[in-house]
Amino acid sequence: MSTRTDTSSNAVVGGSFEGDLRRYLRGLGGLLVFLLVWWVGAMTTQPSYLVPGPLDSVRAFIDLFATSTAIVVPVLGSNLVLPTGLAHLAQTLFHYVPGLLLGASCGIGLGLAMGWNGVLDDWLRPLVRLLRPIPPLAWVVFAIVWFGIHHTGAAFIVFVGAFWINFYGAYGGVEGVSSELTDAASTLGVERDLSMLKLVALPSAAPQVLTGFRTSIGRCWMIVVGAELFGAPGVGYEIINASNNLAMATSVAYMFLISLAFLSMDVGFRLLERRVLAWR
């Protein structure tokens, strides 16, 4: 939703090159002010580990790639040696990606089914209302007793988080299909319910399904770090691990790394979305 308003306001405000430039300069200004405040804050705070300074943090970030760490690839069981930062990022992705993809597929599947089939909707709506408000991280206890807090357990928690966001994207998308379009399709020879779903409901719901998925990319990063604070391996675990050694600059470096990983996934998916939804 927010993307649409963003791009449309860009089109109105920043149509000109000067407008774009002015906006970039302002953004840069904001960043510089933040760096200054951070730097002054770090200089004046004692003991120094309470607020690690920007320079220390950058140095710690570079250090993440100066050493190597061996990690075990789940399922394959083989060893993989990567620069330390990337190794821990890979560990996170080992449960983030399967959890996200599986949760999104199941959520979209159920959302489409319930949005399209009234009987199923009647059956499951109260259950959905009851289960949905449970924060995904609350499932951590079951993740631990069922799977142990390792890749599978963390993937399970990510799954729960991805599931609901994608469920509501698909559910709302299919429910919002205009009856005019289904009427038009009926007069053009679409007879079976399944053809209607494929030819009209799915493409019409695609924007909301994709928005749901993009939202879940971000939400799952929040969740995955939460799961790792409980002990699953990955960047979230490294944040708390470094802070246990009072290496707060290293914690900040991992926070940067998460931000970069999330940002690149988000930008990548936005590009894909714009391509797929060129008709909008």
């Binding site: 038009a184 053009l188 020879g189 493409p203 695609a206």
Partner: peptide
């Protein structure tokens, strides 16, 4: 029920927004 022997033109067009002109015309 509806049938291909009757074509319908709608007040608010009811075009499939995700299909091009060609794709819309081809739908039936």
């Amino acid at each position: 029920g509806p049938g291909l022997n009757r074509g319908m033109v709608f007040q608010e067009y009811a075009l499939f927004p995700w299909r091009t002109v060609r794709g819309n015309i081809r739908f039936g």
